[in-house]
């Protein structure tokens, strides 16, 4: 439901990182979305492709990578990815588990096309 807002934030953050670089030079953007974040990747992608051209990112494609949900068992320290409905440790069957990761909403990288006049700025940003 809130994919539109996350897409808006994504584009805002990308443009902030780009600084002086022309947004048209952005070729692709890598996003890492946790499976526990409540975001539907396809819906996010749809909104990104709608908003990006309006904001000047006319050539950008978005690569969304899903990050797994990880829990750790407090008894046997086993790290596991829970199945759809079972949140207990598959190794020792303990239900004393802690959520570790799976909430990620991250911009992993921005690929910017090389052009003679933007190299300097890219150097500075990195």
């Amino acid at each position: 439901m809130h994919e539109y807002y996350v897409a808006k934030h994504t584009i805002y953050q990308i443009k902030k990182e780009l600084g002086e670089i022309d947004p048209n030079l952005v070729k692709s953007v890598g996003l890492k979305i946790g499976k526990m974040s409540g975001i539907i990747p396809d819906a996010l992608n749809m909104y990104l492709n709608l908003i990006a051209p309006e904001e000047g990112l006319t050539n950008a494609t978005f690569d969304i990578v899903l990050a797994p949900v990880l829990f750790q068992c407090n008894d046997c320290k086993n790290v596991f990815e829970p199945s759809r409905e079972l949140f207990w440790c598959p190794k020792c069957k303990s239900s004393n588990v802690t959520f570790i990761s799976g909430n990620e909403l991250e911009i992993q990288y921005i690929d910017v096309e090389n052009s003679t006049n933007n190299n300097k700025e890219v150097e500075r940003t990195t």
Binding site: V6, H9, T10, Y12, Q13, K16, E17, K27, S28, L31, L105, E106, I107, Q108, Y109, I110, D111, V112, E113, N114, N119, V122, T125, T126
Partner: peptide, 14 residues
């Protein structure tokens, strides 16, 4: 032909 800017930044940073 592209330069990669690695970020690992939260989308909701703002």
């Amino acid at each position: 032909d592209v330069t990669r800017i690695n970020l690992g930044k939260n989308i909701l940073q703002a």
